[in-house]
Design a protein around this nucleic acid. Structure first.
Length: 570
RNA sequence: UGGGGUGUCGCCAAGUUGGUAAGGCACAAGGUUUUGAUCCUUGCAUGCGUUGGUUCGAGUCCAGCCACCCCAGCCA
């Protein structure tokens, strides 16, 4: 649709292309840690990495950054793969795992040790913190900082052999304990963790840290542009230090490069601002908490900003990709209005979703002058502007249902729907007039006695204009369905705001409303799971991919239609 | 009090080598309409955090302020 907007990352790539820095190559990667489900913030990164590769004739790898097995699992790997495929992106070659580089990573660690650039530190985690100093005061050197290469080699070998318990030792890069950048104060690059790894099993009792593994993984995959979010900006000096300290030829040799060594160029890390959207939270920790503590029904709850949640809600891959393009990529942190996301899905569904009628809150209508034994079949187009989408049939009969909100005994100003004595057009059918209201003991209308004008099918009545059009379904031939009305998960624009004690205090208690006994037109009986429709005058809905069955069809409301009446009526 | 960043319309976001502020969302007003939807038209920053400076001319260069974000995991 809209071409990707220009952004600073594309400028950098274009400059690199122009200068021949990478001999015309563009290689990116999307590197999720499999410790949770992907959310729409990840979609921004996915669209960026895959999108940029695609538009410059490059490739994008999918690499699981699986260096912390205690928090990771195969379930997350599976969901992440499924979400990326659903978005419509194709990674280059096989899926990569940082864990498949463990052997090489270990080799490089030995190289650093031999070069006197890394050492085994025996400080406890608490001591290490103390030695690190603070933001404003320099750290102190570890007492083990000047161990001999031989001793370091021996200790590191024994770490690998599993001789020590967790936390007993660590391997640290020897950089500068007085650096104003805390990441450069001899960062830990390997720690002891006796944990089974989901990919490598029991083969390793030590695992590399992100900063160490990530840059080398990028180099091994010949990544040209390593795109990540702003919080890693302070890590860039370390990213560069590690790659520049390692022997370039050995990096080249370990990599999958098919080019000569002299053309081998180290990857460059470039940071961009992560995506934030109002009325939701985006941190994995919080999303996980909402799931594990039961505030929502799983990672794919339609109220979640996860990709699987949005999918179940009825969002399409196209709409999410368009949204990401529209939101843009920059270095300033902002909060995108959720209205922009909603615009994107309405825009896509308006052109692609078949129209249908479904009465959410049924109010019976009896047409007193329509013969009880009569029935006719009306044919309505599935889309007002796209004939290729075909048409569907709806039986019309004496007894119908309309939505309770489409009737007011005493109409407010500018009301165009049905009221006592007034006329309204039934969508695709006749003009009817309400003659009588039947109420229950509480005074609420339970049935409307109306009369129809037989001369108004497909033509406007003579001498008067009927402004309102409402949707309806036949009483007998309609299908009972369940409709889940979703609203925003949080009722505060920024649940993370300092003024809020706990983001969970902002949870919207009305974020899910289950409507049973809704009446859908018969054509909806065969609706396939995940298929989306516009329920005319109500919004866009999709068949729930998990809970819907032929016996009990379940629709999720994706988003309402824009509603200028709501603004007028308050 | 250290280091690294960011500040262009209510919200995102373009602004090549300084030359006289794109676009989208939202909003507002009209038009079309058997969805108060869609669609169409129009409007919406003498202003680019702020104060000075350089210049014929600065959002773009310089200096000083101010505000906000990130960093002290053997997490990523």
């Amino acid at each position: 649709m809209t071409p990707p907007a220009s952004n600073f990352i594309r400028h950098i790539i274009e400059q690199d292309l122009a200068s021949g820095k990478h001999k015309g190559r563009v290689q990116t990667r999307f590197p999720p840690e499999p410790n949770g489900y992907l959310h729409i913030g990840h979609a921004k990164s996915i669209c960026l990495n895959f999108g940029v590769a695609e538009s410059y004739d490059g490739q994008c790898n999918l690499r699981f950054d699986d260096t912390n097995p205690a928090k990771e699992s195969q379930e997350f790997i599976n969901s992440i793969k499924a979400d990326i495929e659903w978005l419509g992106f194709h990674w280059s070659g096989d899926i990569r795992y940082a864990s498949s580089y463990f052997e090489a990573l270990h080799e490089f660690a030995l190289q650093l040790i031999r070069a006197g650039k890394a050492y085994v530190c025996s400080l406890s985690p608490d001591e290490a913190r103390e030695y690190r100093g603070t933001l404003t005061s320099p750290g102190r050197e570890s007492p083990n900082r000047n161990r001999s290469v031989e001793e370091n080699l021996d200790l590191f070998a024994r770490m690998r052999a599993g001789e020590f318990p967790d936390g007993a030792h660590s391997l640290r890069a020897k950089i500068d304990m007085a650096s104003p950048n805390i990441n450069m104060r001899d960062p830990v690059i390997y720690r002891i963790r006796h944990v089974v790894h989901h990919q490598t099993g029991n083969t390793w009792p030590i695992y590399p840290m992100y900063d160490y593994a990530h840059c080398i993984s990028d180099a091994m995959e010949c990544i040209t542009h390593s795109l990540c979010t702003l919080e890693f900006e302070d890590h860039r000096p370390l990213y560069d230090w590690i790659l520049q300290t390692l022997d370039k030829d050995s990096l080249h040799a370990a990599s999958n490069s098919t080019q000569p060594a002299e053309d081998y160029v180290l990857p460059r890390q470039i940071e961009f601002a992560r995506l934030n959207i109002n009325y939701t939270v985006m941190s994995k920790r919080k999303l996980k908490e909402l799931v594990t503590e039961g505030y929502v029904n799983g990672w794919d709850d339609p109220r979640m900003p996860t990709l699987s949640g949005l999918r179940r809600r009825g969002y399409t891959p196209e709409s999410i990709r368009n949204f990401c393009d529209r939101a843009g990529v920059a270095r300033s942190e902002g909060v995108v209005d959720v209205a922009m996301l909603e615009h994107s899905i309405r825009e896509h569904l308006d052109t692609t979703a078949p129209r249908a009628m479904c009465v959410l809150r049924p109010l019976k209508v009896t047409l007193s002058n329509y013969p009880a034994d009569q029935q006719e079949t009306l044919v309505l187009p599935c889309h007002p502007k796209d004939e290729s989408m075909g048409s569907r049939e709806i039986p019309f009969a004496r007894e119908l249902y309309i939505d309770a909100s489409d009737f007011e005994e005493v109409p407010p100003p500018k009301y165009k729907r049905l009221s006592l004595g007034a006329e309204v057009r039934l969508r695709g059918g006749y003009v009817i007039r309400c003659d009588e209201v039947v109420k229950d003991a509480n005074g609420t209308p339970v049935e409307l006695i109306c009369s129809y004008d037989p001369a108004t099918l497909g033509v406007n009545p003579e001498g008067r204009k009927v402004a309102g059009v409402i949707h309806w379904v036949p009483a007998d031939a309609s299908v009972d369905v369940e409709v889940r009305i979703y609203d925003r998960l949080f009722n505060k624009e920024n649940p993370d705001d300092k003024s809020v004690a706990d983001y969970k205090d902002c949870l919207n208690p009305d974020s899910l409303q289950v409507l049973s006994g809704c009446k859908a037109e018969p054509s909806l009986r065969m609706a396939a799971p995940e298929s989306g429709f516009q329920f005319e005058r109500e919004g866009y809905f999709c068949v729930d991919r998990y809970d819907s069955t032929p016996d009990r069809i379940v629709f999720n409301r994706t988003v309402t239609l824009r509603d200028s009446w709501a603004k007028i009526s308050g």
